Computed example of a mutant assay.
Amino acid sequence: MTGEPPPTRVTVTRDGPILIEGPVEVVLDDGRVMRSDRFVVAVCACRRSRTYPWCDTSHRRRTRTAPAPDD
């Protein structure tokens, strides 16, 4: 054992947020720093979130591109 802290785990989800083991600081493109002390943080990857950079599941609210099947 080298005494180094374990690496931070980042999980990229399909069609969803990027999950990062927290706490984390996210530096936005305008230089602002956003901090979360949660043990797992969902970072928005689609930029639809009203709470960007945190995911608010806005990626789930997509318009239907194919017509609904007839019942």
Rank of each mutant, 00 (worst) to 15 (best):
M1T: 11
T2C: 01
G3F: 09
E4Y: 07
E4G: 03
P5M: 04
P5V: 11
P6H: 01
P6V: 13
P7M: 09
P7L: 13
T8S: 06
T8V: 14
R9T: 13
R9L: 14
R9H: 12
V10L: 10
V10I: 15
V10Y: 05
V10G: 01
V12F: 14
V12K: 10
T13K: 13
R14E: 12
G16L: 00
G16K: 11
P17H: 02
P17K: 02
I18L: 15
I18E: 08
L19G: 00
L19D: 05
L19V: 13
L19Y: 06
G22W: 09
G22E: 08
G22V: 08
P23K: 04
P23Y: 06
P23R: 10
E25C: 01
E25W: 00
E25T: 14
V26D: 05
V26M: 03
V27K: 14
L28Y: 03
L28T: 02
L28R: 08
D29C: 00
D30H: 12
G31W: 06
G31N: 11
G31C: 04
G31H: 06
G31E: 03
R32L: 11
M34E: 12
M34P: 00
M34I: 15
R35W: 03
R35D: 01
R35K: 15
R35Y: 05
S36G: 05
D37V: 08
D37C: 02
D37M: 12
D37P: 00
R38E: 13
R38H: 14
F39V: 09
F39S: 15
V40W: 08
V40L: 10
V40Y: 04
V40R: 12
V41A: 05
V41N: 03
V41L: 01
A42M: 07
V43M: 07
V43Y: 05
C44K: 05
A45L: 08
A45M: 09
A45F: 03
C46G: 02
C46H: 08
R47I: 04
R47D: 02
R48M: 07
R48G: 06
R48H: 04
S49M: 04
S49C: 03
S49G: 12
R50W: 10
R50Y: 06
R50G: 15
R50P: 00
T51S: 05
T51D: 01
T51Y: 01
Y52F: 15
Y52T: 06
Y52L: 02
Y52D: 00
Y52W: 13
P53S: 10
P53D: 04
W54S: 05
W54Y: 15
W54G: 06
W54C: 03
C55Y: 04
C55Q: 08
C55A: 01
C55E: 09
D56W: 07
D56N: 11
D56K: 07
T57M: 09
S58W: 00
H59S: 08
H59I: 03
R60H: 10
R60W: 12
R61I: 06
R62I: 13
R62D: 08
R62S: 10
T63W: 10
T63C: 06
R64T: 07
A66D: 07
A66N: 13
A66Q: 15
P67R: 14
P67C: 00
P69W: 09
P69V: 14
P69G: 10
D70K: 15
D70Y: 07
D71G: 11
